[in-house]
Amino acid sequence: MVPSMNSPQPQGPSVRISDAGSKPAGEVIRLGTAALGFVGIITAVDARHLASTEARLDIAPEELEQRLLEMGFVEGARVEIRHQGPIARDPIAVRVNNAVIALRRAEANAIYVSPILETPVAV
């Protein structure tokens, strides 16, 4: 599978899929570009390539990465975009494993995800 974005593939730790019964399908994309209802597995968390593509952030890329990790965005976690804000579809509310975390799309772009196909669960 070939990444479609211009920035180099992030050098995150090896991908580990923890969700039994769900498998990666399709290309790795940035979470911030995904649509409402997207379901995927985090393949990498890396903020180093944000500066050129996104609105200026006040903190160092390493710091953003650390904060995302603190909120449970680690490689292998399952994410699902549940809601989006009223203006410019921003921010987004993402279910990470069992918790719901709100973040802006600009920040979500530091999270690389691969869509998964799974048996739909009644919501």
Binding site: R56, D58, I59, L68, A99, I101, L103, A106, E107
Partner: peptide, 11 residues
């Protein structure tokens, strides 16, 4: 002197 802070918040 700089941009915006991230908005990361548990619901």
């Amino acid at each position: 002197q700089g941009g915006t802070e991230p908005f990361i918040l548990e619901l």
